[in-house]
Write a protein that binds this DNA or RNA. Sequence first.
DNA 1: GTTATATATTCCAATTATGGCATATAAAGA
DNA 2: TCTTTATATGCCATAATTGGAATATATAAC
Lengths: 95, 95
Amino acid sequence: MDNNLYKRKAEIFKALSNPVRLEIIDLLTTGEKCVCEIVEQLNYEQPHISKSLNKLKEVGLIQDRKEGLNVYYSLKICCMGDFFNCLNKIINQEK
Amino acid sequence: MDNNLYKRKAEIFKALSNPVRLEIIDLLTTGEKCVCEIVEQLNYEQPHISKSLNKLKEVGLIQDRKEGLNVYYSLKICCMGDFFNCLNKIINQEK
DNA sequence: GTTATATATTCCAATTATGGCATATAAAGA
DNA sequence: TCTTTATATGCCATAATTGGAATATATAAC
């Protein structure tokens, strides 16, 4: 396989390699959310959430949509759920 | 979800967030390989490969088995393929 | 024991990520 | 225009990651 493809995939995994960003992804699986809702649900500073959202957007995992003052984010890929379930299995085996 | 679960998942993604380690995973999808075979196929120093293998093993993605001087590594999870295919779709959409 | 071979570990400098705080922007209302 | 509100960006110190080079360990053969 092309070396750049590995780099590109590694970037996607890097975007997912942070607990806060994973929590955001999890929140978005229940549908589109504005930044304010995400800030409210998670216990982190708004700038931190904004930067996290930007990182996820950069690698193409989420997309945004403006509406007045609000910015709504939503998942851009659908196969995340299956992989997360798979990881849960691995993690549960450890106990 | 428990905060530690997010941390644990983030660690797994971090292990996958490197092109060399992804190449190793790819190699192992065709079956068990000894370190020497992996070093031969990929163009990296042996210590680098060893460290990469160790990181993948630490998070539970691969396992090892000794036989004489050789150490054989193999995948420990089976759902990787599906997720990789999913990522390929995302990456291909960009073109 | 000594040597050769396969693999792992250590050390290190350079780069990159993290998360907090302050500040900037942009849209809407008065 | 001035203010408020939602979101984004910049700066910074600390921490983590990267990959190379040298070295250590472990097993097997002699």
